[in-house]
């Protein structure tokens, strides 16, 4: 037992590269969250207020995103689109896959958020002469946002964790970079241990920032 010699030095030497890759992870997760929030909002509104093909599209999207593995969704954007002649770069595959997934999950959160705001709020706003746009943007959406704030934070954490799938499709975010170095040096355990710590730190940072933001945003 323990006749294994740990070699941390090569890992530490490439730590700057790993941290750089960690930033790529954050970048792709953040971008897909921004896209996911916008699309998710549209999907939720389409599911609640539309009929016909648009509603059908929204429901299909939401249920596919929620009921198949994220890796399957990445395969679809990789192999699947590749089969019909659309060849995306690994970066685009990850971005598209994560955005697709986040949009589906966030759509359901938004739907819950809209249902949590009583429709009398909208009525009261309209009675003051606000038009529909003003009533939504000033009164309803800020309250929905508060309800979905916590789920959005969780989804952001998920986006970071999911982006590690980049490793399986040849994208050099934190996990992909780790695998690249690990397979070159054969210090697999050491590399992945350090990467695990880096992920832990990233996740804790996100949660801390979210908590600080919440304190500033929600004083009621």
């Amino acid at each position: 037992m323990f006749d294994y010699n740990f070699h941390w030095r090569p890992v530490l030497r490439t730590l700057p590269d790993l941290i750089q890759a960690g930033l790529t992870t954050l970048e792709v997760a953040t971008l897909s969250m921004v896209i996911g929030i916008l699309l998710g909002l549209c999907l939720a509104l389409a599911r609640m207020n539309m009929t016909g093909p648009l509603k059908w599209l929204a429901v299909t999207w939401i249920e596919l995103a929620r009921n198949t593995p994220a890796l399957f969704q990445l395969f679809f954007f990789g192999f699947g689109l590749g089969a019909i002649g659309i060849n995306l770069t690994p970066y685009t595959i990850i971005l598209a896959g994560l955005s697709f997934n986040c949009a589906g999950y966030l759509a359901e959160n938004f739907r819950g958020g809209f249902q949590a705001v009583p429709d009398t709020q909208l009525k009261a706003a309209r009675c003051l002469g606000m038009n529909a746009w003003q009533a939504y943007t000033r009164i309803v959406i800020p309250q929905v946002f508060r309800v979905v704030y916590h789920p959005i934070t969780n989804q952001m954490v998920w986006a970071v964790l999911m982006s590690s799938l980049g490793m399986l499709i040849g994208f050099r975010e934190l996990s992909g970079e780790t695998q690249f170095f690990a397979s070159r040096t054969f210090r697999i355990f050491e590399y992945f241990a350090v990467t695990a710590v880096l992920y832990y730190v990233i996740v804790k940072l996100i949660l801390a920032v979210s908590r600080l933001l919440a304190m500033r945003l929600f004083r009621y």
Binding site: L161, L168, I188, F192, A193, Y200
Partner: peptide, 13 residues
């Protein structure tokens, strides 16, 4: 807080 895929590789090794 750590991606499952990292946990798997880490434990396997």
């Amino acid at each position: 807080s750590v991606p499952l895929i990292i946990q798997l590789v880490l434990f396997y090794n």
